[in-house]
Design a protein around this nucleic acid. Structure first.
Lengths: 308, 308
DNA sequence: ACAGCGATGTGAAACAAACTCATAATCCTA
DNA sequence: TAGGATTATGAGTTTGTTTCACATCGCTGT
């Protein structure tokens, strides 16, 4: 049976118009076309869909069954077209984010909270676990935004700078290194380093400090959650290096000390990688703007507290 | 946007097959046709439905939206085709009944109860209120079966005899006429007659007795429900004439007397009118058979009680 | 990194289906 | 029962879909 949407619209129109001729007008086709159409449809269905004994023809029982289907399905189509229209106009879309840096959750959540208020129809998601191959996944449209601190030249991918941050040494206030004004690579040689469970090339402490200096810490303990890292550090089970937006929370907690890496400190820059096609999209540029400004507020808040 | 069922099937197939080429096999068309089709679809929708950066192409976010629609709609179509197949095979259908005689409810309900067990997929309904123009409504397929005691020669309509019955006079046992062994037309002249609210030509007491004799009762009170008629008769507010299958219930109730109309009694025959096209249908012949035999059981039950 | 293969895209032509026009047949109403 | 309204039919045109042949693009393994 070769049913088509046209047939559903026809059934509905005939029912509403109460006859072929009027229905034909509604559908902007000739009455002849409608007659041919419903004849073909009845042949396909093998069922009489109309009562022809009366002159403005009416739906038969089977016709009403089909009408029921039409009234169920046609609004679904309309809803789809609506969704697509929103997609086209940029009011809706997909924003699946892959983050290469674990600690980014800390500032990303507030950003997305803000974002969802403005773009309720955008499908927002964060996909951890993809961190290894985030950029290829971006190119394959498996995700739509990658947060990374290592920009690369990739065709079809645009890196936008977000903000600068400082990786900061954190230890228990009871820790021997707490007495130093800053820490250096050598200081890590006999330390237990607590870090996120990712490739060490992606950890600032390695890429910026230990690998260049050729220093290997005494041991590494990998922990998923930031809160747990801080817990372990507080109980002096090891030391860690975390971005400044994370340590601001513990800076005035007397259990911890925070120190710059090297005397000058280390500065890093976060980037958002987005497919070049998407940069123009309104919701995308908005989320990028939020990701540039919102974390700064957190850092500024931290700076203000410091001056007290 | 010119969506078609073909497109839904395509989306589903591409998703399940995981690529164009396999999907084309599933749909028994060439891969080229599919490529053209989805290209056209995307142009219509104005949205990218597929991710083409990877080789077996995959659904994009919008594509998944469309897939969701497909998985909602396609089963509905299948259900429709199923229903139509049942219609064709005669397993389902519509049985809307118009009854010209009010009292027929009494035997019709047991018949339909039995019928529904055998034909659960047939849409059964009783439509009172159509009693006036029942036969034209039958021809126009507004109803499918008419119960009547006045067969006519009508093109396309077949009358099948159901069973014979006897209109019986009913009165309170305190009523003066209770002393007569039978009643005649003249007896009604000073009676209040309680009847169903239908044209008097359709009431047996008029068509068979009063109209031929030119007798007009003192008054007529029209009442919808059989139970209410009996109530009024019992309290001696009037007399009535009801079919035997109705009075059997009150025959041995000492509040009532029942008497034949005329010494010989009156015998009437009920018919079922059905469109000739429908007579062959299995469920229709079954309901006719039930309507011939089930009421007889009630009458036989009555006769047995009488012999006690 | 590149070769080779498997998968997708494209253009022209064949094919199928839906529509229109003109007109016939039918029904409804006055 | 005549006239207007409604639906049916057949031929021809138009539109859209499919196929064929071939170009192009990505993935996979060495």
């Amino acid at each position: 049976m070769h049913l088509e949407f046209r047939h559903l619209k026809t059934i509905k129109a005939i029912h509403e118009a109460g006859g072929l001729a009027r229905a034909a007008d509604m559908l902007h086709i000739t009455q002849s076309a409608l007659s041919h159409q419903i004849k073909g449809l009845e042949a396909q269905a093998g069922v009489e869909l109309f009562v022809r004994r009366s002159k403005p023809l009416k739906l038969s029982a089977a016709g009403h069954r089909l009408l029921r289907l039409a009234e169920k399905i046609l609004p679904e189509i309309a809803a789809l077209e609506d969704d697509f229209a929103n997609l086209r106009s940029g009011k809706s879309g997909r924003l699946h984010i892959a983050i290469e840096c674990h600690a980014c959750f800390e500032w990303l959540f507030p950003v997305l909270e803000e974002f969802r208020k403005a773009w309720p129809d955008v499908d927002v998601d964060i996909r951890p676990g993809l961190s290894f191959d985030a950029l290829p996944a971006l190119q394959k449209e498996e995700v739509d935004l990658v947060v990374s601190s290592d920009p690369e030249k990739l065709p079809g991918v645009t890196f936008s700078p977000l903000f600068d941050y400082e990786p900061v040494f954190v230890a228990s206030s009871a820790h021997p290194l707490a007495s130093k004004p800053f820490v250096e690579a050598e200081d890590f040689r006999d330390q237990m380093l607590i870090s996120y469970p990712v490739d060490r090339a992606r950890l600032d402490v390695f890429s910026q400090l230990l690998i260049p200096a050729g220093v290997e810490p005494r041991g590494i303990r990998q922990v998923e959650l930031t809160a747990v890292i801080l817990l372990l550090v507080a109980s002096n089970r090891g030391v860690s290096v975390l971005p400044d937006w994370v340590v601001r929370e513990v800076r005035y907690n007397s259990d911890y000390v925070t120190r710059p890496l090297t005397k000058a400190g280390v500065t890093r820059r976060l980037y958002a990688a987005v497919r070049s096609d998407d940069v123009e999209k309104p919701f995308m540029s908005h989320v990028l703007q939020l990701a540039r400004t919102e974390p700064l507020k957190l850092q500024r808040q931290f700076a203000t507290e410091e001056q007290l």
